[in-house]
Design a protein around this nucleic acid. Structure first.
Lengths: 147, 147
DNA sequence: CGTTGACCTTCCCGTCGTGGGAAGGTGCAG
DNA sequence: CTGCACCTTCCCACGACGGGAAGGTCAACG
């Protein structure tokens, strides 16, 4: 199977397949005389594995580890779980962070009239005590947030 | 105020301040004879504005728009709100996506024994019907120990 | 057998926001 | 005057991917 067929069979773009080759993640089992990459079924499965792992948000370093565990039929599931749990904690943290942003924004948007007038609590929040031209002392602290 | 003082006053790194200058977002009001950037209070406030906007997840193009609305004292709050709402929808979509990943992972992790045995529903999910080396018919019992 | 068009190869550039660091000029205090 | 902290510009890197150029290869069709 050449790279185009491997791409169709795995759902991974040829660009990415070459990239995975380059970084040593999935090397083609052979090259033809014309230097074309040759992939066998096992490698197609590895590409599919990577595709699925990426769809779950794993980073390339994590996938590298997962793939080597996948190849090792004697791996302890403990190690797989550890990677998954670490990634899960990371995901949860990022979700919480974005949720905080979204909550703040929802509140600000809710408070904004959204009409022709220039007064806008959204800009007021962004300003956070600093004004573009004139001083406004009215600091309505409705929402506190982190960095 | 030179760039170092502006950085301390705004909480934005000197690298970023130079970057904002480069992309035309916040230009120093003046340069000294020695070509040092000079920032005044207004620009410090703009830098703080950007910092706060970034902390809410706005992209640079969005911030460019927000900043120009902020500078325009006659802007309609409608426009600000539109930008915020668009970003909010984007945030919500990304949160939902990550939440789906996290939910899937949580389920898989929950089903994984996490011990010395190689059987792992996490890898099984990633495999999704593809096997690393030998054809495994279907569901496999937990007591199987490869030899 | 030659042309054609689809495919393959490598190599370089851009993304986006940020940090690192080199090479060289400037400001100020001792 | 020296030394050090600061400033300047310029280039490189990241992660994961896409676009595209320049050139080689393959297969089908006339």
């Amino acid at each position: 199977m050449n790279i185009g067929q491997a791409s169709k069979a795995s759902g991974v773009s040829t660009k990415m397949i070459r990239y995975y080759d380059e970084i040593g993640l999935v090397r083609p089992s052979a090259r033809t005389d014309a230097n074309y990459r040759e992939y066998d079924e096992r490698e197609i499965n590895e590409l599919r594995f990577i595709r699925r792992a990426r769809s779950l948000g794993f980073s390339m370093p994590e996938i590298t580890q997962l793939l080597s565990l996948w190849r090792d039929r004697g791996r302890p599931s403990r190690e797989v779980k550890a990677i998954a749990d670490r990634h899960l904690a990371d995901l949860d943290a990022r979700i919480a962070e974005m949720q905080a942003m979204a909550d703040t924004l929802r509140h600000l948007s809710h408070c904004c009239a959204g009409d022709d007038r220039p007064d806008c609590p959204i800009l007021a929040d962004l300003t956070q005590g600093a004004l573009p031209s004139e001083p406004r002392p009215k600091a309505r602290r409705a929402h506190v947030h982190g960095a």
